[in-house]
Design a protein around this nucleic acid. Structure first.
Lengths: 148, 148
DNA sequence: TTTTTAATTAGGAATAATTCCTAATTAAAT
DNA sequence: ATTTAATTAGGAATTATTCCTAATTAAAAA
């Protein structure tokens, strides 16, 4: 499947879900959703804002954050939170390992089997798992070749 | 091994390492190290500060952060960074899964096999791994039983 | 089509843990 | 005892995100 087709289907799925739930489909929301669906690079709120202003010039920071919070609540996106860099947003809500480049900030998905099972953790530790966070910090291919 | 013996050995190891590296062993540092070695509950900077003031009343926030940064640089502790709660500090610097309770903030180690190997990631993705972060968010045993 | 209204938006102020800055202090080598 | 580079204390600065409020609007109802 072409990347642009994938983006379209992700976008449609998100819009339909919001319609079902009775959310208003404002131009601002459509724009934010379009950007999230197209951008597989785990964009920052500031990048989404900057991009959205190309088509919706008056969109505000609050609206971007408000919409992202709503999409997160509806489990349509995942927020990856950092304290020393901007948070990032991902339409891939499955449990997967993220490879995070410490030089350029690029985040790429690493597809592999699930490393821990919720059931095992619950049985062995009496802890009730809700969600996971798997990250690997290092240097991405581009940055490795750049500094050779 | 008793927990207090374990703490003593962790403490000694850290002090020796700093001596070797030529760091000054100030009362403030000794106190922070003692607290870190004893506290297996992944304490916050504010908790370390509060505790340290019992024996070193004049110790400042800056000193705690400065010392924690130094210990992290020397790889004697690991800093677990959060954007919506205080960062936490751990003398267990191995790669392991942390179980994080969303209700009380408690963090416990989950000992299990390593879920991903650096070598595999490097071979399969051209990404050079440095360090990992594995977290599971949920509800801990205490909080589960409390709300029944 | 017009009216209604609760949800949404824009803009700016507030937040708060951590970092930054600087002068004073001090551990430890000489 | 002297020296000095490292360390400390205290407070100001930082800054992405959240909070607050009045104005606007998507979409349901009339």
């Amino acid at each position: 499947m072409k990347a642009s087709d994938k983006a379209k289907s992700v976008e449609e799925r998100m819009l339909n879900r919001l319609r079902e739930k009775g959310y208003k489909l404002t131009p601002q929301r459509r724009e934010i959703i379009r950007i999230l669906a197209q951008d597989t690079a785990h964009p920052r709120a500031a990048e989404i804002l900057q991009n959205a202003r190309k088509h919706a010039p008056s969109i505000s920071t609050s609206t971007v954050y408000y919409t992202l919070a709503m999409l997160k609540k509806e489990e349509l996106i995942r927020e990856i939170e950092f304290y020393d860099m901007d948070n990032r947003y991902d339409t891939n809500v499955s449990n997967h390992l993220n490879l995070i480049c410490e030089r350029c900030g690029r985040i790429e998905d690493y597809a592999d089997e699930l490393p821990f099972s919720s059931k095992n953790i619950e049985q062995r530790s009496d802890f009730q798992p809700f969600r996971f966070r798997f990250e690997c910090y290092g240097i991405c291919r581009k940055c490795r070749s750049r500094r050779k």
